[in-house]
Every structure is written in structure tokens, then in C-alpha cells.
């Protein structure tokens, strides 16, 4: 998969490039609107990550120009502006998704996956990792043959982590996808932490191998390896 990242802030650009490369994508980095536009017009990419505030030709101009050229490449906008009008302007200009800075890298990664996966449905009603088996249809969880009794919320939490197994999941992603909350509210962070702690008690404490790990400052990960 070829991804073009257009970002003028060098640290952010390099970090995003490295992070996406580590996930297996081939990443080209452009640091100006003109360079980005040139690359996007002359080569084929599977996805473009575009910063809105660029010096010279700004992100929305580049996007509009690309759309005029009938390029249908999915575009993810990065921006520091989160007002409704800015969101609307971005989507109107032809963006497919919109991520507000500062963002958690797992969030960026998840959204890129979502955009690239479009059209292909979410796989499987059965998720497996280590000795853990989750049956989404019946809402049943088994580990090493033992059935785990989880509350509805705990189940949803575990299911989401399992779908993203091996990848870090941020609290914002959990708030949005599991709790279906719109904003970044502090009280919800505590609620999430408590649920994770309880899930961990039921999921990991009775067993030797630990699956649910906390990555300090970033989020949580369901994985057989300790990060």
C-alpha cells in the first residue's frame, strides 16, 4: 500500500512516516503543498494524508485541485482546527475523513485502515487470540476453555480490543467506538480506566499469560507479547 503524507512540520511528518512504515505501508513524505500536489498528480497512491495548514498552497486548495483532476484517492485531513465550519469545509472540498491535532498515532492508524478497507466488510464473527475466543454472535467469551462472565460494556471493550489485536488502542478511540461518545471528556477517561481494570481482573488475573496491556501515555493493547 502506497501512502502519501503531505505535512510541513518535519517532526510530525517523519514520525508519521516511520509509524506507518512500521505497519507495513510504503510512505512518501512531501513537505509543501506544491510538492504534494505534484507527487499526487504524477503517481498513484492508495491514500493521502494531508495537513490542512500548509505554507503556500494550503491543504484545501491542493485537495480541491486533486478532485478537479478526478483523482478519487481517499484523503485524510489533519488539522488543528476543529470548529464545525472547518470540518464542513474540509469534507466539502472532497476529504474522506478528518483528524484533529494533536492526535494519538493509533487513531491515525485506525482511520487509515478504515479508509483503505472501504467496501470490504468487517471480517469474522469469531475472534481468536492466544487461548482467547470471542463469539460476537452469541456474545460469549472463552479463555482456555473457561467461560468468562462479562458485563455488556466489558464485552464490547474486549471485542474492540480483539478486533485491533496487536495494535495500540487509544482512550479516544475507545470513547468513540465503544462508548459512542462525541467529545474528549476527562470523566470518561476514568470510566474507561476502571472498565479496563475490571476486564483485566476477569481476563488476565486467573491466567498466567497476560493479554491486556497498558501502554503508558498511549492506550491499551490486546496482545500475546508484552509491548
Amino acid at each position: 500500500m502506497q501512502i502519501l503524507v503531505i505535512e510541513d512540520e518535519p517532526k510530525v511528518g517523519r514520525a508519521v512516516q516511520e509509524g506507518l512504515r512500521a505497519e507495513g505501508y510504503e510512505v512518501t513524505l512531501a513537505s509543501t503543498g506544491e510538492e504534494g500536489f505534484f507527487l499526487a498528480s504524477s503517481r498513484v497512491f492508495d491514500l493521502i494524508v494531508l495537513d490542512v495548514m500548509l505554507p503556500g498552497r494550503d491543504g484545501l486548495e491542493v485537495l480541491a485541485a486533486l478532485r478537479r483532476q478526478r483523482k478519487t484517492t481517499p484523503v485524510l485531513l489533519l488539522t488543528a482546527r476543529d470548529a464545525v465550519e472547518d470540518r464542513v469545509a474540509g469534507l466539502d472540498a472532497g476529504a474522506d475523513d478528518y483528524l484533529v491535532k494533536p492526535f494519538a498515532f493509533p487513531e491515525l492508524s485506525a482511520r487509515i485502515r478504515a479508509l483503505l478497507r472501504r467496501g470490504k466488510p468487517e471480517p469474522a464473527t469469531s475472534l481468536k487470540i492466544g487461548g482467547l475466543e470471542i463469539d460476537s454472535g452469541n456474545r460469549a467469551v472463552m479463555r482456555e476453555g473457561t467461560r468468562l462472565e462479562l458485563t455488556a460494556r466489558e464485552f464490547e471493550l474486549l471485542e474492540f480490543l480483539a478486533r485491533n489485536q496487536g495494535r495500540v488502542v487509544s482512550r479516544e478511540m475507545l470513547a468513540r467506538e465503544v462508548w459512542k461518545e462525541p467529545g474528549r471528556a476527562t470523566p470518561l477517561d476514568n470510566v474507561i480506566d476502571v472498565h479496563v481494570a475490571r476486564l483485566r481482573k476477569k481476563l488476565d488475573d486467573p491466567f498466567d499469560a497476560k493479554l491486556l496491556h497498558t501502554v503508558r501515555g498511549v492506550g491499551f493493547i490486546l496482545s500475546e507479547e508484552t509491548p
Partner: peptide
């Protein structure tokens, strides 16, 4: 780094 990221999150909020 985790600790620094926590502070960064606090700043964000």
C-alpha cells in the same frame, strides 16, 4: 516516554 505522553494528553485536554 509514557509519562511524557501522559502530560501531553493533559495539555491537550
Amino acid at each position: 516516554i509514557g509519562s511524557m505522553l501522559e502530560e501531553a494528553n493533559r495539555l491537550t485536554r
